[in-house]
Amino acid sequence: MALLELQGISKNFGAIQALDNVDLRLDPGEVLGLMGDNGAGKSTLVKIMAGNFPPSGGEIRLADEAVHFHKPVEAREKGIEVVYQDLALCDNLTAAANVFLGREIKLRFGPLKILDYKRMYDRAGQLFAELKSETRPRDLVKQMSGGQRQAVAIARTRLRDCKIILMDEPTAAISVRQVAEVLDLIRRLRDQGIAIILISHRMPDVFAVADRVSVLRRGRKVADKTTKESSPEEVTGLITGAIQSA
């Protein structure tokens, strides 16, 4: 049984058809590489799965049950976490505040609830340590490197037990060493049984961690095969259109 299944998903923005009848399937504990050129519809597909906007047509099924997301929170409640391309971080807040934004740890005094900074700093520090990141919980995100920002965004997803993590270009803007760290992290998440959709431009990253790869071109899915049966050359051809489909 598929963990997540998209059936015939389409999305129009006015006259532009960003997605045309896309099927996608994600099994438990699987890393799926989602590839495509700029404008192929990767980010649109992610945003539909994350509940940022509904599809114009088609159905999303979670564990064989049709779901309709109207807000990102609803997707999150169903166990889908997202690391956005623009990282969804507030520059003016600390790393810890960003990790806990929207689900702050609170102390209760009767009817009053106040922020428990100490526990949030401690827990955030713990998460960063698990990620082997040098990010410090009290630093403002504004002052951070791309890799540290990535760590903050990924730490967010680890707060709750989720089933699926969607990662939109997690290795796009970070140092070589931290790319390796992020890939390690993806493997570790997979070993814990979390299914991951990795959206990326970077061929070596996808082939390093993904079990399967799906390729989008101009809003259509043109290929879906295991990485063992494919090759970077073939996928490049599929992305550019040199190979029509596979």
Partner: peptide, 24 residues
């Protein structure tokens, strides 16, 4: 400074898109 709502005020003014994405 002490409540989640205060955090959300800063987040809304800092980056409303990011804040909305994470459920604020």
């Amino acid at each position: 400074l002490r409540t989640p709502f205060g955090n959300w005020i800063f987040a809304s003014g800092g980056d409303k898109l990011a804040a909305r994405n994470v459920g604020v």
